[in-house]
Nucleic acid binder design. Structure first.
Length: 745
DNA sequence: CAAATCGATTCCAAGGGCGT
DNA sequence: ACGCCCTTGGAATCGATTTG
């Protein structure tokens, strides 16, 4: 956090649940992958207010070996067989282990791949009995609530006492290698009863132990035992706290969930490994057996039952941490989204985190740097692409086909690098929607030289955005119907490349250079803007007029001039629009508003000029430029003439107008323009004898009489009238001129 | 248990935009 | 032209985890 001092006093309400670092915690899973994993849940949580019952399931899915469904189907039979033997074996367990203080719930782990187990056992009997069990090491979670500085639960090894019985209580099965298990699966025998005995012992001990062990005397374990006893098949143990973990050989292991989770959580490296790999990992020496390893992952009553007693506590703690992690992640993702929305640099992600924290929300204690935002933005992007992909590949209910769509693209150079912005145009819930896809850099430099910018390369970029970025399947490309772009894309090469990549080559179409079913329409607005540029550049009249109109912005656009303009307008209670500049690089339609705002506030502008800036100097250019009668006439005329084309241009820019509507608009506009060309009627050489039609030139008509007044002092425009003298440009003001004429008469 | 490695964070500096 | 601010990449540092 860049300004941590500011927020330090709010640290009091930091929950004291644990001291583990919450946030973008690192593990074997890469940062980006983890964000992607979390993002779906997080985004769902964002959307439906956090009441997502799927969350624990999802988190669980990250762990291996929890695929219960498959097992419940295949091994229901096996479990029922085991249960049948249970009654018989009860007699065995009671006398054999009565005086066995070490006998415990660690036997809850029972391999039930029977054939493999039997074979392994047979093989084991050939060898000598394994003595390595006498001293065992139990992995145990250190209670980390007191040493919160490091915070992370660490594994410590505890040497446990020896079993009372000499013979191995749990038949340790030696199929740690794939070869052994393959060999084992070929052998079948009746020693399987040994396995059943283990389960009997387990059940028996679980029943006995609670009375002997205060730690085991909690409702959860008792309930688990009850469920386990009443189970007749594997699916019944659901909810008992024990779970079936399948292995890769079709068998599996019944484990105490809480204890196993505790082990796995404390050693994240185990998460990426499968069952046997976990086993090997947990074995300390190669000589150790699978059974011994399993025991470590089991629920155990050793150490006075402490381990199992702690496991549910640790589990609850983990769940609290997980929930907090989701909260934290949501807050962090919200901050990142906010930063994106305000179009700020990722540095401001840090500021957003600071703000969120200062508002009392939990932001964790990791993942606050701007570098973290990169991964989040990538996750956003991937998610958006997925949503777009789903939209484009899901068949519509009406047609049974995926929706047709179009693309549009344009180049842009914000600073130095030109980017090719590519968007998809598609109907979404009945609304025309433009979805951004990608913006690859146009030009690249390689050993072959400068590359990019040609028509076919641009077309390839469009295709690449669809195929590589969006990962659309190839058959979806045939739904691409059109590409909308400006002049540079109207080349045959672009169409050809795009069409052959999406819909395959069709020579007839290519020869005709167009295909009515695959079109590249030109953006109407761009086309009209080019017309406007042509008109502007070819007309000295317009250029001069724009130069004169820009004077207002120069004078009153900002600073002192702006204040004096606004002040004068307020004093005289006049309308005062903010002046604008006619930007030649921008669309003519956006610059057209300049003329309108001048028209609206011309009186205020002139008043401000007359009041403060105007001098008595007859040669002052400015007063003729902005207060001339010809300027007023031109202003009204230009607004009248251009208003219709500009209206059309603005309409054609909006997304909710169909491109081809312009074909209906243009004849009307053209008719109006032609009618304007015919009138004003009268002798144009003498402006005072020209009549203006109200319908065609509303503004000009409105002010024409005023502007024709010989003494125009009181006209609305309040400009000094300037007449043209002897074709030598602007002479004196109109008033001076008429005064002179009057004198001479 | 120490070294190595990895990841997150912070500090620093260069470069560009923009207002004065 | 100058200075301030923003952005961004890289180096340094710190802490946690893994490995030998």
């Amino acid at each position: 956090m860049s300004s941590s001092d500011e927020y330090e006093n709010t640290m009091d309400h930091e929950p004291d649940v644990e001291s583990e670092q919450i946030g973008a915690k690192s593990s074997k899973v890469s940062n980006e992958r983890k964000f992607l994993q979390y993002f779906q849940t997080a985004s769902k949580k964002l959307s439906d207010g956090g009441n997502d019952p799927q969350v624990p399931k999802h988190v669980k899915n990250v762990q291996p070996g929890t695929n219960k469904k498959r097992v419940q189907k295949t091994l229901t039979f096996a479990w029922s067989v085991i249960r049948r033997f249970a009654v018989v074996s009860e007699r065995h367990a009671a006398p054999n282990h009565k005086n066995d203080p070490g006998f415990n719930l660690s036997k809850s782990i029972v391999p039930i791949n029977h054939q493999a187990a039997v074979a392994a056992k047979r093989k084991k009997e050939d060898n000598t009995l394994c003595e390595s069990e006498d001293t065992e090491e139990v992995m145990e979670i250190e209670n980390s609530s007191d040493n919160s500085s490091s915070g992370n639960a660490s594994l410590v090894q505890v040497t446990t006492t020896q079993f009372g019985s000499k013979r191995p209580i749990q038949s340790t099965l030696n199929f740690t290698s794939e070869e052994n298990s393959k060999q084992a699966s070929r052998v079948c025998g009746d020693d399987i009863s040994v396995i059943y005995n283990k389960i009997d012992k387990l059940l028996e001990r679980m029943e006995i132990t609670p009375s002997e062990n205060k730690f085991m005397h909690n409702g959860e374990t008792e309930a688990a035992v009850k469920i386990l006893k009443e189970s007749s098949c594997l699916s019944d143990i659901d909810g008992s706290g024990f779970n079936f973990y399948p292995d890769t050989f079709g068998g599996g292991i019944v484990r105490c969930e809480a204890c196993f989770e505790m082990i796995c959580d404390s050693s994240p490296a185990l998460l990426d490994k499968d069952l046997l790999q976990v086993q090997r990992k947990m074995e300390k020496s190669p000589g150790n057996t699978l059974g011994a390893g399993l025991e470590h992952a089991s629920c155990t009553t050793r150490n006075g039952g402490n381990a199992h007693y702690r496991a549910p506590i640790a589990r609850k703690r983990r769940r609290v941490i997980k929930e907090r992690s989701m909260d934290v992640l949501c807050n962090q993702l919200k901050s990142a989204l906010f930063t994106v929305k305000i179009k700020a640099a990722s540095l401001h992600y840090e500021n957003a985190i600071g703000l969120v924290h200062s508002c009392g929300s939990d932001v964790g204690n990791l993942g606050h740097g701007r570098n973290q935002m990169k991964a989040m933005v990538q996750a956003f992007e991937c998610y958006l692409h997925k949503r777009t992909r789903d939209l484009l590949t899901t068949p519509l209910p009406s047609t049974g086909l995926p929706p047709h769509f179009g693309t549009t693209s344009d180049k842009s150079t914000p600073i130095h690098v030109s980017n090719h912005a590519i968007m998809i145009l598609v109907m979404l819930n009945g609304m025309k929607t433009a979805i951004p896809v990608d913006a690859p850099p146009v030009y690249s430099f390689s050993e072959a030289g400068l590359k990019g910018g040609t028509a076919d390369e641009l077309a390839e970029q469009v295709i690449s955005a669809l195929v590589k970025t969006l990962k659309l399947p190839n058959n979806s490309l045939s739904s691409l119907m059109a590409h909308q772009a400006d002049g540079q894309y109207q080349s045959r090469m672009f169409l050809q490349t795009l069409k052959s990549s999406t819909q395959g080559d069709n020579k007839e179409d290519l020869l005709a250079a167009h295909d009515i079913f695959f079109v590249i329409p030109w953006d109407t607005a761009h086309w009209m803007d080019l017309c406007m540029v042509d008109i502007r550049e070819s007309s000295e009249f317009l250029r001069r007029f724009i130069k004169r109109a820009n004077q207002f912005n120069t004078m009153y656009g900002r600073g002192k001039g702006h204040a004096e303009y606004q002040g004068v307008a307020k004093q005289n209670s006049l309308k005062a629009h903010v002046t604008k500049v006619y930007a030649t690089t921008r669309f003519a339609s956006s610059s057209f508003s300049q003329f309108e705002s001048i028209y609206e506030s011309y009186e205020a502008l002139c008043k401000a000029f007359s009041a403060i800036r105007e001098t008595d100097d007859e040669d002052e250019e400015m007063k003729y430029m902005i207060k001339g009668r010809d300027f007023c006439l031109d202003l009204c005329g230009i607004i009248d003439i251009l208003s219709k084309p500009m209206e059309m241009m603005i309409k054609s820019q909006s997304l909710d107008q169909y491109l081809w509507s312009v074909t209906k608009w243009w004849p009307k506009v053209k008719a109006i323009l032609l009618a304007m060309k015919r009138g004003p009627t009268g002798q144009l050489s003498d402006i005072r004898k020209v009549t203006v039609r109200k319908q065609l030139f509303p503004k000009l008509w409105k002010h024409y009489e005023d502007l024709n007044e010989e003494d125009s002092v009181d006209c609305i425009f309040r400009g000094s009238v300037i007449t043209r003298m002897d074709g030598r440009g602007y002479g004196r003001t109109g008033r001076q001129h008429f005064q002179k004429e009057k004198k001479s008469h």
